[in-house]
C-alpha cells in the first residue's frame, strides 16, 4: 500500500536484547481512523515512540507523507505533520490553558528570536494570529474562554485531556496519534470523545491513529483495527473481522484477561 499516509515496513526494535517490536508492517490510510489494540506490554506505545522519533528501530522503514521519518529528529517529525497525546496527560505545569496550546504552534511560526526580543510589529501580529488559531482549537475541543487563563493542570481531568488534544491540533498535524485517550474518562465523556475523534477527521481532515483498551470505543470509532501481541502484528481488519479472529481471542485469553474477550 504505497498510497498510505503512514507506512511502517519491517520495523524491529529491541532493548538490550529484549525484542519489543518484530518485523512490524502497518499502514494508516489518508483520512482513516485506525486503532491499535493488544494486551498490556504488546509494544503499542513503543510503536508510537518509533513513529515520533524517540526510539530508533534497529531495522525497517517508516514513511509519512513523503518523509523518511527515521532520518528526522523528533521536532522535525512534528513539523512534518504528526502530533501525539499521552496516556497520562502531559500538559505543561504552571502554564495556563492558552499558553499550553500556543506552545504547540512553535513549528508553524516564523518570527525569529531577534524579532521576538525587539517585539517588532510583525512579531506582535504573528502573536495575535497564533492566539486566534489556538482559540479555534480550544473551541473545537469544547474548552470555553473562561478556562483559557487557568493553570492547565488545575482543570478537571476530562478537560485536561481536551486541552492536550487542542495543543496537538495546534501543531497542525495531518495525523494525530492518541495514546489511550479514554483512560480515566466516564461513560459520558467517552461518548464526547468518540464524537470529537469523528469531528477531527471529518471537519479537519486529520487522520487518527489511536491506542485504546476500551474495546467498545474502538469498535465504534475505528474503520480498521490492528492487533499487536508480543511485538508482532497478529491481525488487521475491520471490527467484525477482528472480533471473530481466533488469534486475537487467543492473545487476549492467554493473558488471563478474559474480560477483554467478553467485551467483543
Amino acid at each position: 500500500m504505497s498510497g498510505a499516509l503512514l507506512n511502517l515496513s519491517g520495523v524491529s526494535l529491541a532493548f538490550a536484547g529484549n525484542t519489543v517490536l518484530q518485523n512490524v508492517d502497518f499502514q494508516v490510510a489518508e483520512g482513516a481512523v485506525v486503532s491499535l489494540i493488544g494486551p498490556n506490554g504488546a509494544g503499542k506505545t513503543s510503536l508510537f515512540n518509533c513513529i515520533t522519533g524517540f526510539y530508533k528501530p534497529q531495522s525497517g522503514a517508516i514513511t509519512f507523507d513523503g518523509h523518511e521519518l527515521l532520518k528526522l529528529r523528533p521536532h522535525r517529525v512534528t513539523a512534518s505533520g504528526i502530533a501525539r497525546t499521552f496516556q497520562n496527560v502531559r500538559l505543561f505545569r504552571e502554564m495556563t490553558v492558552m499558553q499550553n496550546v500556543m506552545s504547540g504552534m512553535h513549528s508553524r511560526t516564523r518570527s525569529g528570536a531577534i524579532a521576538a526580543i525587539l517585539r517588532l510589529p510583525s512579531q506582535r501580529a504573528e502573536e495575535a494570529a497564533i492566539r486566534d488559531y489556538c482559540e479555534g482549537c480550544l473551541r473545537f475541543v469544547g474548552v470555553g474562554p473562561e478556562e483559557y487563563d487557568r493553570i492547565a493542570t488545575t482543570l478537571a481531568y476530562g478537560h485536561q485531556r481536551r486541552v492536550e488534544i487542542a495543543r496537538a491540533l495546534a501543531t497542525q498535524p495531518k495525523l494525530l496519534l492518541l495514546d489511550e485517550p479514554a483512560a480515566g474518562l466516564n461513560a459520558g465523556e467517552k461518548q464526547d470523545l468518540i464524537a470529537l475523534i469523528r469531528r477531527i477527521r471529518d471537519e479537519r481532515g486529520i487522520s487518527v491513529l489511536l491506542i485504546e483498551h476500551d474495546t467498545g470505543l474502538v469498535m465504534q470509532v475505528s474503520e480498521r483495527i490492528s492487533v499487536l501481541d508480543h511485538g508482532a502484528m497478529i491481525a488487521e481488519g475491520t471490527a467484525k473481522q477482528i472480533q471473530s479472529n481466533p488469534k486475537v481471542i487467543e492473545a487476549y485469553l492467554g493473558q488471563e484477561d478474559a474480560e477483554a474477550e467478553l467485551d467483543f
Binding site: T52, R73, P74, H75, T78, A79, F92, H106
Partner: peptide, 17 residues
C-alpha cells in the same frame, strides 16, 4: 518555559530543543 518543564514533550510539539 516548555523545555524547562518537559523537554521530550516540547520536541513532540515541534520545538527545536
Amino acid at each position: 518555559r516548555a523545555v524547562s518543564i518537559d523537554m521530550d514533550m516540547s520536541q513532540l510539539l515541534g520545538i527545536n530543543v
